[in-house]
Every structure is written in structure tokens, then in C-alpha cells.
Nucleic acid binder design. Structure first.
Length: 428
RNA sequence: GUGGGUAUAGCGUAGCUGGUUAACGCGUCAGUUUGUGGCACUGAAGACCGUCGGUUCGAAUCCGACUAUCCACCCCA
């Protein structure tokens, strides 16, 4: 019988790695909490139209990367990102009628049918936040500072914040026209993809890696010169707020973002330490999205942070997140009567919240000790006929080899806690 | 969707000028005389050499296709 394999572009997070995820997730939740964000959980699949309307009919994500599934008479789409579903939930549940701004965060998996490579999977995990109701650049700064604090405190180094403003629909339209006018005379010289971009998304031309396109685009007009007064002051205010928060950034006029809903502020945190997919966090303002999804005209913004990418960065930089949990006590019984006793003691400790194990393999004492060592048991207790007779046994500290007498009854847990505390203090 | 690299036990590798029982390290399991782990030693299990097809008397070794995987483009987190 052939072994079935996991689908292309998916990952198994194994027991040895799950503690990293748990530590990271707890940290993300705690940090979001200090910024006043509460968790929202939304469905994994939504009506396909939510994404085509929200993310944008012409985007690559919607046009060629969505997993659209059918079940009986309905079709749905596995979310390719978290924002659309989150905004949908906010609207459907009337959260905009509560105190504004509404601040939510989520940790979820997203699905995009792309060719997998370093830092790019078909199912990937995202931490994201959305803040709805504020048009102020102070909100932009707050959201950016949340991302910044997470990256700093989790221990990421060498990551840069790039910001840009892509204007509102009014000024962006003028800029697009200016760009098209600039590139049009060079149309034939541009690379194939850029010729397409000229129509579809002219701002992408500025980001092309082809030396020819780069050269042509050298003197192209910049979006920042085309911002209307409102967008322009918004951007200036944001920069001022970032300065006040002591967050360093560089203005990068080439940041475009491939999702249609962005307006005004866009930003990315980028690293070079994990290969070509270096954007660990990306986001921005989307003042038109809520209305686009049928809600009241409401300014909002947010970001998404790629957790696999973040963990890649941390691993490459040698940052360790938490150690795997270890067993506190291993009972090594010899003989049937001892095994019965060990079974009961194990259960008793577990009820007290102490992690305990005993033999389920019928192993010799020697083999049991080897096993206890392998699983990293902190303490072991050998139980044989002598111990049963005296109702006392030796608790062995596996690291120091030190042995202390303990009672083999209900008093064990209490005694163990004392010993464990002493052990911890001794190590500090 | 496009391009390039790789594909041998759970993991990491050797073998690849084609020749008969596919090797090594780590890991796993058992044991090293009867009540104690980390070292060492002994032994065992575990691979139809990614799949299918071709060349050949004979292929893990050569060729092709497919699949998977990695990297890059594209795109994004």
C-alpha cells in the first residue's frame, strides 16, 4: 500500500517544532492585547465573491491563486488572506456600532495556489490586525508600532521598515496617467511582463528587476509628487508620528501592494536573511474596503505577518523561542505490584498538574532508565518490593544524580513541589 | 504559469567509467548475568535505490517521461 503524502506546499508542524509555534502565538496574543486588540475568529472559507470584491477582481491572488471548492450546490473559496473575512465579520455582526475604533487581531492559515519556494507555501499562517474607524495617521502609526514591537521583542534583527503612500483613488488615478504617459514612448523596449503591467498596474513597472526597465524607469514620476493635499498631509503626519515613536523607516516609492484595497499608507517589514521572499509583514490603510463590501464608508487599516517567514528569520538568526516541554517525573516500576502502584501515582501527579509517565512497554529497569533519559525526564522514581514495603522511594534528580526520599502516597505531590522549587532555585 | 538543481532505510550521506548479498553515521529496538540513565560494546529491525517506460545478457548506476522537492521568476505574508 503506497504511502499517502501531504499536498504540495503544505507543512507538518512536528512535536519537536510545535513549542516554537506555541511560544510565538502566545507572545503575539499578549502583545496584541497590550495594544487593546482582541482576537476574532472567522471561517476558513467564505463566499468567493467576498474575495473578488474585497481583494480585487484583477489581482493575481484572485485571478489565479484561489482555492475555490464546491460542495453540493454551493461553491466557496478558502481564504487567501485575512482582511476580507475579518471585515465581513465586523459588518455582519454590527461591530462598527460599538466603541470605535474597532481593534481585532487573528492568527489563521491562508491558502494560495502558487509555486512553493523558500518562505512561500500554499497553506501559510498569518498573524494580522485590523483597526476600523479611524482616519487619523495616528492610527497608522499605532498599527505600525505594534508590528515593530512584535518584531523587536521576539528578537528579529536586520529587518527594515519601508513605507509609502499610494494615495487615494483620486490622486492615484492622476499618477497612473502620468506613469503611462512616461512609459508609453518606450513600450516596445520594456520586458514582456512590464508591457502587461503598463495597462494593468503601471506602478509595478518601477519594481521590475530587468536592467532595461530599470534604466527606462530611472526618471519616472514618483507617486509622492502626485498626492493630493489630504493624502500628502496624512503621509507627513505619519512620518512625524513614527519619528516621535522612535521607529526608523525608509520611504520607498516602489512599494505597491498587490491587493486592490489599499489606499494612502502602505508598508512592509523586509529582511534579506530568508531568500527572495523577504517580506515578513505587510499592510496598510484601506479606506474604501468597508464600503466596497457593503458597509458604511469607514476608514480602516491593518497588516498581515507571515508566521512561517518570521520563524525562518528567527531560525536563521539563531533565536530560540521556547524549549519543548519535558516530563517532570518518570516512575520505573519493577514487578506487577510496583506497576500498579506506579500507575496510581502517575495518575495522582497528573491531577495535580505535574507531568508524569510510567512504563507502558514492559521494559527492564535499565531500559526504563534509558527511556527516561531520552525523553528528558527531570526526575525518576524506581519502585520495587523494598519501596512498596516501606511506602518510601528515592526521587532521583536526573541532572545532578542527587536522590531524596519521598513518600509513595498522597503526600508525594506536595513533597515533590518543594523539591522541584528548591531545584529551580539552585539553578538560578 | 515560466526556468534551473535534486530524488538511495526515520534523518544525513557513500556507491553512479553499468556486473551479481546496496554501504556508513545518527536515530529506533533488544542485550552487555540477576535494582538505576547519559559513555562504551554486541546484536536486530528498517531501502523493491521517487514512479513508469526505454537501452542492455545485465541498471541504484545510461536515456526519456511523470511525480515530488528545493531555488529563482512572477506574486505576496
Amino acid at each position: 500500500m503506497a504511502l499517502l503524502k501531504r499536498p504540495n506546499g503544505t507543512e507538518d508542524i512536528l512535536p519537536g517544532a510545535s513549542s516554537d509555534w506555541q511560544t510565538l502565538e502566545k507572545f503575539l496574543r499578549d502583545t496584541a492585547d497590550t495594544f487593546g486588540f482582541s482576537e476574532i475568529r472567522v471561517p476558513t472559507f467564505e463566499q468567493t465573491e467576498l474575495f473578488s470584491r474585497g481583494v480585487g477582481e484583477t489581482t493575481d491572488v484572485v485571478q489565479k491563486e484561489m482555492y475555490t471548492v464546491s460542495a453540493r450546490e454551493s461553491t466557496f473559496t478558502l481564504r487567501p488572506e485575512g482582511t476580507a473575512g475579518t471585515i465581513r465579520a465586523i459588518l455582519q455582526n454590527g461591530l462598527l456600532n460599538e466603541a470605535l475604533p474597532q481593534r481585532v487581531y487573528y492568527i489563521l492559515s491562508c491558502f494560495r495556489h502558487e509555486r512553493p519556494q523558500a518562505g512561500r507555501l500554499r497553506e501559510f499562517h498569518q498573524f494580522g490586525v485590523e483597526m476600523a474607524g479611524s482616519a487619523s495617521p495616528a492610527a497608522d502609526a499605532e498599527v505600525i508600532s505594534l508590528a515593530k514591537q512584535i518584531l523587536d521583542q521576539v528578537g528579529v534583527e536586520n529587518i527594515e521598515l519601508h513605507i509609502n503612500s499610494i494615495g487615494c483613488p483620486v490622486c492615484r488615478k492622476k499618477y497612473h496617467e502620468a506613469l503611462k504617459a512616461y512609459f508609453a514612448p518606450h513600450r516596445e523596449e520594456l520586458c514582456e511582463t512590464c508591457q502587461e503591467r503598463l495597462e494593468k498596474n503601471p506602478m509595478r513597472l518601477l519594481d521590475c528587476k530587468s536592467p532595461i526597465c530599470k534604466e527606462i524607469g530611472k526618471d519616472a514620476p514618483e507617486i509622492l509628487d502626485y498626492l493630493c493635499e489630504d493624502c500628502s498631509t496624512h503621509f507627513a503626519q505619519l512620518k512625524k508620528n513614527l519619528d516621535l515613536l522612535d521607529i526608523s523607516y525608509s520611504v520607498d516609492p516602489r512599494i505597491v501592494r498587490g491587493l486592490d484595497y489599499y489606499t494612502k499608507t502602505v508598508f512592509e517589514f523586509v529582511t534579506t536573511s530568508i531568500g527572495a521572499q523577504g517580506t515578513v509583514c505587510g499592510g496598510g490603510r484601506y479606506d474604501g474596503l468597508i464600503e466596497q463590501l457593503g458597509g458604511p464608508s469607514t476608514p480602516a487599516l491593518g497588516f498581515g505577518m507571515g508566521l512561517e517567514r518570521l520563524l525562518l528569520v528567527l531560525r536563521n538568526q539563531g533565536v530560540t523561542l521556547g524549549e519543548p516541554k519535558r516530563v517532570d517525573v518518570y516512575f520505573a516500576p519493577m514487578g506487577d505490584a510496583a506497576a500498579d502502584k506506579a500507575l496510581q501515582l502517575t495518575a495522582m501527579l497528573r491531577r495535580e498538574g505535574i507531568s508524569a509517565q510510567t512504563d507502558v512497554m514492559g521494559r527492564s529497569l535499565r531500559a526504563q532508565m534509558k527511556y527516561a533519559d531520552k525523553i528528558g525526564a527531570r526526575f525518576t522514581v524506581v519502585i520495587g518490593d523494598n519501596e512498596l514495603a516501606e511506602n518510601q522511594a528515592k526521587l532521583k534528580n536526573m541532572q545532578s544524580g542527587e536522590q531524596i526520599s519521598v513518600p509513595l502516597d498522597a503526600a508525594f505531590a506536595e513533597r515533590f513541589s518543594d523539591i522541584e522549587i528548591a531545584d529551580r532555585l539552585a539553578k538560578e
